[in-house]
Design a protein around this nucleic acid. Structure first.
Lengths: 218, 218
DNA sequence: ATATAACTAGGGGTATTCCCCCAATAAAAT
DNA sequence: ATTTTATTGGGGGAATACCCCTAGTTATAT
């Protein structure tokens, strides 16, 4: 390896960043070019200087890791993301990987594995901790089950239906929805029954559950 | 300082321990004599070798920091405890301090402050991070004030209520729930209204949304 | 251009939820 | 031992949701 890997460390825990620094400074092929303690700082840094890889804490203040990941992937395509987190939480893992992170390791990862992860991701491959791999497997299993139980998707929900659905989830009654959207009570009822049919739900409880399970309002 | 301070590092996050190690190895008056990744190991270590100070993570697996703290204070009176945690949580702080920890710092503490904390505690004084001091003050101030501001606060939901709630989320009607649980329609209605009150919901939609948001059925 | 879907709205009726009141028994906490 | 909470159950009524039907207008896609 002729060139050094330029690493930007982003974590709000100073001591942790110090630790990473200490670990990486002994490596000839790796150079820590910056340290950030919140999301926006990462973006600011990358606007001024370049980095090959961001060691990115998923749980950052101000702007969380997922948001940062989105922006970096859009505006700084040459910069890779190695996500790092305290928690082996399925939601964190899957979400940040869906937004362009090339790797995900846990903070209980050892020194050697950290170095391996950085070099692997920098080479354009992906790297996951063993535990994380298991988590990903689990979530894949679950999503398969979920999509099976829903019996083939949810048909497209129209713009107006989505507005109604949003208000239903927010505990509005049909009357209140009608007033809010300046339409007739009967129209709202019509949308409601369309939603029940499309989502294959029996009642309001089903509408809300399926909405949350499938994140239909995001 | 003639003698070196013998430090035992106890944290389940390998990378963090590595970081501490890297920071402390440059200091002539401080020596890391051991590394533990769970509570019982700390006790085992102290039975065999001595340490002046344990850098103790509050959230340890197997046996948490408070338990470890109790035992160390009882059986190894010469060993000081410097508690360390990710979270500036009032409950953690007050509880471990009440069980004999001499200091409490956060993981976002910088290198210099860590070294200061270790030397201060080793000298028989106490050391708290600035943030922690504030937290202690706050807890003394409010102590009695109920936590209304906690938006996500949900009173305890009883076993039976949880059963009813589960079936509501699964789109059962009150009648069906009554049959399923072998109780009267009126009893189910009673549970329903208790749930509405406890969860501060207006209707079924709210029950389901709050249930999903807070993962009340896991 | 001509279906297809979306948005609108009504009539009429049943089912369900939500609300108030109440109260006995059992279990758990103080 | 006493209080509180949980679980059970009821009467009655108002509000809401759900279901059947139809149907005109307006986008949108083929």
């Amino acid at each position: 390896m002729e060139e050094t890997i330029k690493v930007l460390v982003a974590d709000d825990h100073t001591m942790f960043v110090d630790g990473i620094d200490s670990i990486l400074k002994d490596e000839k092929d790796i150079e820590v070019v910056g340290r950030c303690y919140d999301g926006p700082s990462v973006i600011e840094f990358l606007k001024k200087e370049s980095a090959d890889l961001v060691l990115l804490d998923v749980n950052l203040p101000e702007m969380n890791g997922i948001e940062v990941c989105k922006i970096v992937n859009k505006d700084f395509k040459d910069t890779k993301i190695l996500a790092i987190s305290m928690f082996n939480e399925e939601s964190f893992v899957t979400e940040i990987l869906n937004h362009g992170a090339e790797g995900y390791i846990l903070k209980n990862t050892g020194r050697e594995e950290l170095l391996t992860a950085i070099r692997t991701v920098n080479d354009g491959k992906t790297y996951f901790s063993k535990d994380v791999t298991q988590t990903i497997m689990k979530s894949l299993m679950k999503s398969r089950k979920a999509s099976n139980s829903t019996k083939g998707f949810i048909p497209k929900i129209s713009r107006r239906e989505k507005e109604v659905l949003k208000l239903i989830v927010e505990e509005f009654t049909t009357q209140e929805i009608a007033k809010e959207l300046f339409i007739s009570l009967k129209t709202v009822e019509s949308h409601r029954s369309s939603l029940l049919a499309k989502m294959n739900a029996r009642n309001t409880a089903g509408l809300v559950r399926i909405t949350m399970e499938n994140k239909l309002l995001d």
